[in-house]
Design a binder for these strands. Structure first.
Lengths: 231, 231
DNA sequence: GCGCGAACAATATGATCAAATTATGCGGCG
DNA sequence: CGCCGCATAATTTGATCATATTGTTCGCGC
């Protein structure tokens, strides 16, 4: 029962008794995560207060939290904007995910319940639909949800939070790249992963997830190397 | 009302005026990091406003940032306190550092300059003094500075930030443990590490740092396993 | 043991101040 | 006569605060 920082939304059944700064944070986080905010775009605090109809303080706190997680950055002295992902930062993210993802997948595999398997299968099925429909936003959201479900299964609060934080960094760039490439030839080794997890084969599951992640990250890197700038 | 009589920041040079929320954040972070706040201790926002002589908004933002990094937690619904490190969380931190530290050390080794070596040597020398003097706070601070200097040398903004964030989680517990054990028999494989970095021997450097970190973390785990509760 | 209310602490707002960016106007130079 | 650069004004935006509001805790009387 611990999501005090609120970077994870475990259940969609959220209590509406949550403070405003928490709600604002989640909305802003999702906007970053699923590409509603473009890389380089400025994020003004007063713009958000009017756009979201909220007061200044909750918005400020939400922005600070996003900055703290690397989802936003302060440029120059005070202005805040969505970071433009640099090539060396992608390298770092690749290195990190190359360790985090198989590690968490292994732990998830040995802890997986039947409910977990059906949940993963369901998410992946919905993800296929989104791909076929060309629903970019749906793809991004379901893909993230798939991986985060595995994080949750791993029962590693700290490591999951760290791995999840990486998504905030490549989210905006991912949106741009997918918008260019299209949703058709996106990596999807999810079925192999779910299968391996269901069999309890941690090695195979870790390999499948690693392959999935690596493929996606390398596509991101390649697309970003082409057009060094993404606006 | 309160005009800063001067920017007498101890070590850094002429730092242009940083916003209050940034200064408060750093002070609070250091308090967590070096054990001025005990695990489980409550952190009230109004207490800090009066203690630090600051307004509410900067304090709130600083606290949010610390929560976001796992340095503080919201207990129940609203109250904020320093987290009590649980044994399973230590396991996670150990796993993470077991990957982060050698990775960053390798990168640091191939990028090390002469200035880096002298800096590391200087920090480690001061650290020895602190140990001899039984200066616990000095030990904690210099030990952290030593490792963070290596992070900086690795030139990996994202990974460094993640690795550094882990310190916020075990900082308070580390203080308690060191207070019990004393500063004498604390791990210090720093000299071997600096030596290896100076030789450009990435493998040896990574091994030394790994040993140093593992030793410290295992001591932490052992001490915490003894007295499950730390007050 | 169980409400009830007082005290306390966090949440949220809008006002106010300060900084930075953009717009503007003036004079000199080509 | 028109263009450029610099200085200054205007506007936008961020930082901070005092205060009102809301929710939580805890002691007191029943």
């Amino acid at each position: 029962m611990q999501h005090p920082t609120g970077q994870m939304t475990p259940t969609p059944m959220a209590q509406s008794r949550l403070p405003a700064h928490e709600l604002i944070y989640r909305r802003l986080r999702d906007m970053v995560l699923y590409g509603d905010l473009a890389p380089g775009q400025a994020v003004t605090i007063q713009g958000l207060t009017s756009q979201l109809g909220a007061g200044m303080t909750p918005v400020r706190e939400a922005i600070r939290r996003l900055i703290s997680r690397g989802a936003l950055e302060t440029r120059g002295n005070r202005r805040v904007s969505v970071p433009r992902l640099k090539i060396e930062h992608i390298e770092e993210i690749i290195q990190a995910r190359k360790w985090f993802e198989p590690h968490l997948t292994r732990r998830a595999t040995v802890r997986a319940t039947a409910a977990d398997i059906t949940a993963l299968t369901g998410i992946d099925s919905a993800l296929d639909d989104a791909i076929l429909a060309g629903d970019l936003r749906g793809y991004l959201e379901l893909n993230h949800r798939f991986h985060r479900r595995i994080y949750d299964m791993a029962d590693s609060a700290i490591l999951s939070e760290m791995a999840d934080g990486l998504w905030l960094r490549f989210g905006p760039a991912m949106r741009v790249v997918c918008g260019r490439v299209g949703t058709q030839n996106l990596p999807d080794m999810h079925k192999a992963a779910v299968d391996a997890i269901g069999r309890g084969d941690a090695d195979a599951a870790a390999a499948a997830i690693s392959g999935d992640v690596l493929q996606g990250m390398q596509q991101l890197r390649a697309s970003l190397a082409d057009a060094g700038e993404v606006e």
